[in-house]
């Protein structure tokens, strides 16, 4: 939708260098990818040095840090493992995110070729390419991620919104019996706060 309105003349024109410095985003169709390339072999070295301390040697993750590889065919399991290989729809997202935000605590420190190499290694860890693969701007779109087709646009309007827009709700004698079916106290994982309880008792008892 074009916007036709009176301008206030505020701000100034951004220079091409300024736009280039900040406009680093990459799209699924490859728009925004810079020139460059990187191999699985180079990626393995970089990954070991810069990534494996959190994400594990094979993308399996340390502690609660994100799992990057594996989990294929687990999305219908009781506990799905959502990784680049099992869940993410687009490789461009991997490139964009590693480049803009990783390593955690040292963001935007990787060169374009280093990002290509790390992404190539992540593809290898997810069994998408062989160990002699070299990823580049030119072949970037040739290996799609397996789960792309399983995403669809928000469809709440088709089902939920219609069902939950009730003309009438029950107000009295809605059910005969009520039973407790789950209890948080049994799971017992809430942080305690005895001080807060004491402060409330002093005020309200």
């Amino acid at each position: 939708t074009p916007v036709a309105a009176e301008k206030l003349g505020l701000g100034r024109t951004a220079t091409p260098d300024e736009v280039a410095a900040w406009d680093i985003d990459v799209r699924p169709d490859g728009l925004g990818l810079p020139e460059g390339s990187g191999s699985v072999m180079d990626g393995e070295e970089l990954y070991s040095e810069k990534c494996s301390v959190c994400h594990g040697d094979f993308g399996e993750a340390v502690g609660r840090w994100p799992v990057l590889a594996g989990g294929q065919d687990s999305l219908t399991n009781e506990r799905p493992v959502k990784t680049i290989g099992s869940y993410w729809p687009y490789l461009s997202t991997v490139w964009d995110y590693v480049h803009r935000a990783m390593p955690f605590g040292d963001a935007q420190s990787l060169t374009d070729d280093e990002v290509y190499a790390i992404v190539a290694y992540l593809m290898y860890l997810n069994d998408l390419v062989d160990d002699d693969f070299v990823l580049s701007k030119e072949n970037f779109l040739e290996v799609p991620l397996p789960n792309e087709a399983n995403f669809f646009m928000d469809d709440r309007a088709d089902g939920e919104l219609k069902e939950f827009a009730k003309a009438e709700v029950c107000m009295s004698d809605c059910k005969d019996a009520v039973e407790i079916t789950a209890r948080a106290a049994i799971i017992d994982v809430t942080p305690e706060d005895a001080e807060a309880r004491k402060a409330r008792e002093a005020k309200y008892s």
Partner: peptide, 17 residues
Amino acid sequence: TSKYTDLLEDGTARRFT
């Protein structure tokens, strides 16, 4: 994509919710 998409029981996921 990775986050803020809503995985359903059949393994598909809603995006842009």
